[in-house]
Design a protein around this nucleic acid. Sequence first.
RNA 1: GGCUCCGUAGUUCAACGGAUAGAACGGAAGUUUCCUAAACUUUAAAUACAGGUUCGAUUCCUGUCGGGGCUACCA
Length: 592
Amino acid sequence: MIENILTANAVKAVNQLFNTQIESSALAVQRTIPAYRDQGDFSLVVFPLLKISRKSPEETATMLGNRILLNMPDAESFGVVKGYLNIRIKPEYWMQFLSANQNKSSYGIIETSSGNPVVVEYSSPNTNKPLHLGHIRNNLLGYSVSKLLKASGKNVVKVNLVNDRGIHICKSMLAWKLFGNGETPESSAKKGDKLVGDFYVLFDRKYKEELSELMSNGLNEDEAAAKSGLMMQAREMLLKWEARDEETLKLWNTMNGWVYKGFEHTYKRLGVDFDKIYYESQTYLLGKKIVEEGLKDGVLFRREDGSVWIDLTEEGLDEKLLLRSDGTSVYMTQDLGTAQLRADDYDPEKLIYVVGNEQNYHFDVLKLILKKMGRPWAESIYHLSYGMVELPEGKMKSREGTVVDADDLMDEMIATARAMTEELGKIEDFNSSEAEALYKMVGLGALKYFILKVDPRKNMTFNPRESIDFNGNTGPFIQYTHARIRSIMRKAGEEARFTNADSLHPQEADLLIMLYQFPQMVGQAATELSPSFIANYLFEVARQYNQFYHELTILKEENPEIRSLRLALSQLTSIVVKNGMDLLGIEVPEKM
RNA sequence: GGCUCCGUAGUUCAACGGAUAGAACGGAAGUUUCCUAAACUUUAAAUACAGGUUCGAUUCCUGUCGGGGCUACCA
């Protein structure tokens, strides 16, 4: 990599000139900002070196530049502005890179997949309601991060922990029993997860009715909640479930089965998948062993009422409950157990949890407990915490019915893509299945790109209309760029066969250097666990390409050398766009 | 209240402590209707506030203001 070579040479030059020993980390080579591109391709800030050189910034930079030119064959020239040393790399270097990679379809992707795995947990749905917009961000992030890690050479295991037990699913089951008429997904023509979700909502409604009736008889809210027959029945059902009551288990299996079928459909459409699915019903008891162990070691303590706690006040956190006084486990207990299970199953290099930022505290505590319990792998736990997704109309509230259902949203995006395309009459030569595939590609591409281009940690606003624009920083714009390049290549009727050219136009050099940096971008995005790097990078590439190139400038170019350079640049751009979008889980069309 | 994250053009997003804070959409003005869903040119427009550290701060620290989240014997 040229940046590394440059850094190494700069370090060497500093050490020779000023007779010291600095580390390469003391120097940072960065891409020269556009305003000074006429001076060079990469820049070095020399301000930090002034203490060593005891000379003016300009003088220091000039001395360094001269020395680097002497030592580094690929360096062509340099310019100095204030404390900045701008170094020009020989165009031959870039052209050689282009001719070597112009047809490499796997450019930027490593996929060695060796070593201890990185386990990425994402999605983790409850089985009492369908997936919504927030889950979409979770799934897209988890999937894309997994792809990024894989593309940077990691061995990745994607896991999903389904929360399939607990009081919430009992509520759906109870409502189905009490208020339903034996509906099934088939009889009601509803997706299974929707049907179960509807009964969950129905339970909540009936429960509220019951509460207000009790309260109108003079009880306060807490008393009413304690007297609620519905809630009592739901708890009973949970106890029956834990006692393996046959009838309860049967209904539970049936209704969860409906939900899984519904989820499968949503996942498939969204384009995400998993290597392993854990079910909480099979893991929820695991944490208790760890708690016993902790009690023995004295890390945990037991209160008079029998409940078990950990004291984290020294670490600046609270006391945290790990077992209820009746001996049943809580969320944290279960997570301790599943974390141990992951560690045992995979001996992972890193354990990544893709979970919303409302659980930051939970994961701080989880990590801390495991550390205190002497689990060396606790350090490898990483909570990839993402912000909420809001809509232009405001926040989603399940109580107010403003939750955006994942399936509905995908439908809407695809329908919009269809409407826009049909209105413009762009694809008359497509048969109907090709057209359908394109609508889906564009509609979902818009959705995915819009969500992934934002730094995961930040809250964001999803605007469906803006996302599907064919201009601007959008998925369709990048897809469109890819389709255009492919079209140009088809019309050219030849493979890219660039060997050499006399010169490189500055804008072509900019694009070429950008393409050169793609593998580094993948590495950085994988390290930072942030697909947004790739998304914003791809937009820059597409924008740069579109600004300079169009069909005329390529196909009507008469100088064969320049034509072949432009074809090769187009080809490599399309490869970068395709591979980059693939890392985001977005398909790109050959034509559109 | 305590803990925590966040605050950048009208809007949606960028910016390893580095040069004149970038784009996109929208706005204004203009040229054009030939590149796949119009393009191109010009233009106005932002770091919430006050300190501090630094050669240099949107970035790090402190405080103020504003917003989100957590603060359950729910998951």
